[in-house]
Structures are given as structure tokens and as C-alpha cells.
Deep mutational scan, measured.
Amino acid sequence: SAVVMEEGSPGEVPVLVEPPGLEDVEAALGMDRRTDAYSRSSSVSSQEEKSLHAEELVGRGIPIERVVSSEGGRPSVDLSFQPSQPLSKSSSSPELQTLQDILGDPGDKADVGRLSPEVKARSQSGTLDGESAAWSASGEDSRGQPEGPLPSSSPRSPSGLRPRGYTISDSAPSRRGKRVERDALKSRATASNAEKVPGINPSFVFLQLYHSPFFGDESNKPILLPNESQSFERSVQLLDQIPSYDTHKIAVLYVGEGQSNSELAILSNEHGSYRYTEFLTGLGRLIELKDCQPDKVYLGGLDVCGEDGQFTYCWHDDIMQAVFHIATLMPTKDVDKHRCDKKRHLGNDFVSIVYNDSGEDFKLGTIKGQFNFVHVIVTPLDYECNLVSLQCRKDMEGLVDTSVAKIVSDRNLPFVARQMALHANMASQVHHSRSNPTDIYPSKWIARLRHIKRLRQRICEEAAYSNPSLPLVHPPSHSKAPAQTPAEPTPGYEVGQRKRLISSVEDFTEFV
């Protein structure tokens, strides 16, 4: 048969007729292969192709491409040299491709048809291009793949890379869960390890502090508590009631339409708007009261037996805890006409967050109470924005700035309102402590230090009264110190430094 060459192609190359033996071998191979691939376009007849790359030819070592076609129900084999250009295909004639002069020997084609199974398996396991790669995943090629499931790999992101949580363990979102698992493993320790309690022994800490320079003076030496005195035992138990972190309780009120001037209507609300609910979820963490331990979680007086509701929101960081007394989460009882059960919590909070959804101005004093010092007013606006402002009593104007209003988005509203309420509550605590000038409020841990110092002074006084020969370590507060001759004046800087060093040991009130 003659071949018409394309323009620009090399000279004529004689194409030899395939021997009958080659056709029989390739026909047997075509019957084993699956003929249901995917359909081509209507211009080209339905056909199945599979590209198999052999590394070497037997005796020649030339890479070839073998295409199996099922045109007219008769499979045909096409061998081509890759750099050459194939002729145009037609549905009426068999596929013809040019070969190099080196394939002119018909014996070479017979060798190609009689490829060993080793070469076929190696060509099938190679990388296939384009559409033949999808075909190689079918059941027909499963014989050339190794048996057994593939090893499982770690989760992959859409980009093909490992997620960040699997790369950096410290930033993994499941870090707290692993800590819980470690605690569970520790709890399952053997009885021999049960006595080993991690941490620092208080006796060891005391020993280090006792021999430090801070205890060089007799006034700073630790003293032993009497065991037989019940009054001192009660004082030590009272110390446990003062937490070592700051605590805040903040009221949250929802004002519906037409309720801006009605205290009873505001306290009777059992739910609010959708934006109000989203605002609550951002204030803190939802907790169930019956599962809380009052000595570990500050509840601000809420009952854990269901008297004040089942849930509330709280927030904490390293040095403070805040609980929100939310009116809509507290039960509304029919027998309580004046809502006294709610007001006994909300009316005693220094700061209230008022979500004013009424469309009218909310005035300070609508919720009557002796300790309502500051109101954080949240007014929802259009386009997911809110107006946040402050209202306070006249005696609080020096501590709280009420002249600045803020426009905040719904997303950042819980954070801004919480921070403003916490700052206002700190100012309210300082303002409330002014009624007792001898006990200015600095912080909870300073209050613990003052309680310890008062307890020490009482013990020293009782020891001096029981044994008059012992001198008083600290003179009583009601006694007057003996007159001392004025010492020589020293520079102001040295006096300030000495006073600062003494105050650092005794108390921190002056620095606050």
C-alpha cells in the first residue's frame, strides 16, 4: 500500500504489510482489554486508547508507543517513533504512522508483537499521559499493580500540603484535648505513684524565703500560729474566702420596643432579638451553673441549684474572672410580681450592659438600685453597626469618660462592650471603697496581704499580753509611738528610695 506524505515531511518511507502472525497476537491482546472507555466527539468514531511506554525494544532499544483501536470491530496495532508526526486519522481507513528506516525489517515488528510479559508489566506500571491515566485505574490494570491496600497518609489540604495544625504542634487546635488526655493517663497511674504529687513543697518555699535578706529584721520574721485558738483558725479560714484573682460581676439587660421607661417590662423579658443573642455568645463562655464549683469559678452570688437559672456566661484571663448576670437567662416566676429574684442580683451590680433595642433613649435610673454606678448603652444600628456610649452617676464623672461614643461592628461589639464594662467596674470598686478611707481597694491579692498582716499583728499583741517580758514586734495601731529626735535631713532622693524599699516589703498600697 502507498502512503501520501504530508508537506514538509521527509522522503517516502516504505511501509510494510503486517504479517498475519502479528495480527493474531494483537487480536488476542485486544480481546482481554476493556472496550468501555469514554466516548469521543461525534466527528471521530468511538475508540479506546491506552498509551504504553516501553523502555527498550528487543534487539533495537527504541521507545515506541502502542495504540489499540477497535475500529470496525477489528483491533489494530500502531507502532510509531515518538519524534515523528502521525498522519491524519479517518473512520474509513486504518491508522497509518511513519516509521524510521531502522524499523524497515519486518522481523523487528514480529519481535515487538512478542514482547515478554516482563516488558508489558513494566510498561503498564509506568506513568501514563492524559486520558490513558484514568483508564489505567480500571480493573483491567489491577493485575499489573501490587496486591494489598496502599499505606494511609496524613490529611492533605486542597493545595496538596499538610495542614498547619499537623506541622506545628504548639498551634494545633487540639492541644488542650491532648492535655486532658495526659491528665487522664496520670489519673490511671499505679498505686505506688499515687503518693507522688507534682509541684513545689510549701515548706521548701518557706525555707528559701526565711533565709532571704527580706527577713533580716525582727519585724519581718515569720511567727508560728497558735493551734489552740479558734479565733485565729477562723481568720485563716476567712483568708480562703478572698480569692487571689480579681472578680467582676456585670449585669446584662435587654430593652425591647416600648420598654425604655418600664423597669418591670425590662426585667420580665425572657429572650431578645437575634443580634442580641449573637452578642451574648461573644461576651464569654456559656457555663452550666450546676456543674460549677464556687471555689474555682466566680459566680457573683448565683445559685447553683437552679434558683437563678441553669446557664450563664463568664469570662476570665490570667488575673481576673468576670460573670454576667443576664436577665433573660434568669427564670421569670409568676409568684414574683416585682421580679425581686432578678433584681437582687442586677440591682447590686456596679455596672450594667444595656442592649437598647427600643429605638428610644434609655435613662440612668430606670433600673432603681443603690449600686448602679455605670451603664454601657448598646444601640443597634443599620448595616451591622452599633452605637456604644457610657452613662454614669455624677459622683463617678471624674473616673469615667462619658463624652466619647463609639461606632462598632457586630463582630467586635462583644469585645468592646466587655472591656468598657470591666474598666468601669474597676473604677466603681475604687469609688465605692472611698467610703472607708482606711481600706482603699487596690486588688484582691493586696486584700489578702492586708488580712495576713492584721492576723500577724493580733498574734503579736496576744503574745505580748500573755508574756509581758516579750517586746511587741508591731505596736498596736491605737498606741502612739514614742517621740523621736529629728534626724539629720537627708537628700530627698535617698528618703524616697528608703521609703520605697520599706513599702515594698510591708505593703503595696502607695504604689497603687
Results as ranks from 00 to 15, higher is better:
Asp217Trp: 14
Ser219Met: 10
Lys221Tyr: 15
Pro222Leu: 05
Pro222Phe: 06
Leu224Gly: 11
Leu225Asp: 13
Pro226Glu: 15
Pro226Met: 14
Asn227Cys: 09
Ser229Leu: 11
Ser229Cys: 10
Ser231Phe: 09
Ser231Tyr: 15
Glu233Cys: 11
Val236Gly: 07
Val236Cys: 11
Gln237Tyr: 10
Gln237Trp: 06
Asp240Cys: 04
Gln241His: 08
Pro243Ala: 08
Tyr245Asn: 07
Tyr245Ala: 05
Asp246Pro: 04
Asp246Gln: 06
Thr247Ala: 04
His248Ala: 15
Lys249Gln: 14
Lys249Arg: 10
Ala251Trp: 03
Tyr254Phe: 04
Val255Met: 02
Val255Phe: 02
Ser260Thr: 12
Asn261Tyr: 04
Ala265Asn: 05
Leu267Glu: 03
Glu270Arg: 05
His271Ile: 08
His271Leu: 08
Arg275Asn: 00
Tyr276Ile: 00
Glu278Cys: 08
Phe279Val: 00
Phe279Ser: 00
Leu280Asn: 00
Leu289Gly: 13
Lys290Ile: 06
Lys290Phe: 05
Asp291Thr: 11
Asp291Ile: 06
Cys292Thr: 09
Cys292Trp: 08
Asp295Ala: 07
Lys296His: 06
Val297Ser: 15
Gly300Leu: 05
Asp303Ile: 02
Asp303Val: 03
Val304His: 07
Glu307Asp: 10
Asp308Gly: 10
Thr312Val: 14
Tyr313Ala: 12
Tyr313Gly: 04
Cys314Trp: 15
His316Pro: 05
Ile319Met: 15
Met320Gln: 15
Phe324His: 02
His325Asp: 06
Leu329Arg: 06
Pro331Thr: 08
Thr332Pro: 06
Asp334Trp: 07
Val335Met: 12
Lys337Leu: 14
His338Leu: 13
Arg339Cys: 15
Cys340Asp: 15
Asp341Pro: 10
Lys342Thr: 05
Arg344Tyr: 09
His345Ser: 07
Leu346Thr: 09
Gly347Tyr: 15
Asn348Arg: 15
Asp349Tyr: 08
Val351Ser: 02
Ile353Lys: 00
Tyr355Ser: 00
Asn356Thr: 00
Ser358Pro: 00
Gly359Glu: 03
Glu360Leu: 06
Asp361Tyr: 06
Asp361Asn: 08
Phe362Asn: 02
Phe362Met: 05
Leu364His: 14
Thr366Ile: 09
Ile367Arg: 03
Val374Phe: 11
His375Val: 11
Val376Arg: 01
Ile377Ser: 03
Pro380Asn: 01
Asp382His: 05
Asp382Ser: 05
Tyr383Pro: 03
Leu390Lys: 02
Leu390Thr: 07
Gln391Met: 12
Gln391Asn: 06
Met396Ile: 15
Glu397Leu: 13
Gly398Ser: 12
Thr402Glu: 06
Ser403Phe: 04
Val404Pro: 14
Ala405Thr: 15
Arg411Val: 09
Arg411Gln: 12
Asn412Leu: 01
Val416Thr: 04
Ala417Glu: 01
Gln419Glu: 14
Met420Arg: 01
Ala421Met: 00
Ala421Arg: 00
Ala421Gln: 00
Ala424Ser: 06
Ala424Met: 09
Asn425Leu: 04
Val430Lys: 01
His431Ile: 14
Ser435Gln: 14
Ser435Thr: 10
Thr438Gly: 07
Asp439Asn: 11
Asp439Cys: 08
Ile440Gln: 08
Pro442Tyr: 04
Lys444Gln: 08
Ala447Ser: 09
Leu449Val: 06
Arg454His: 15
Arg454Trp: 12
Leu455Ile: 10
Arg456Thr: 14
Arg458Thr: 15
Ile459Ala: 08
Cys460Gly: 14
Glu462Gln: 11
Glu462Gly: 15
Ser466His: 12
Ser466Asn: 14
Asn467Phe: 13
Leu470Trp: 14
Pro471Lys: 10
Leu472Lys: 15
Leu472Ser: 15
Pro475Ala: 12
Pro476Gly: 15
His478Trp: 12
Ala481Pro: 11
Gln484Thr: 13
Gln484Ile: 12
Ala487His: 12
Glu488Lys: 09
Pro489Asn: 11
Gly492Arg: 08
Val495Asp: 15
Gln497Pro: 14
Arg500Thr: 13
Ile502Arg: 11
Phe508Gln: 15
Thr509Tyr: 05
Thr509Val: 05
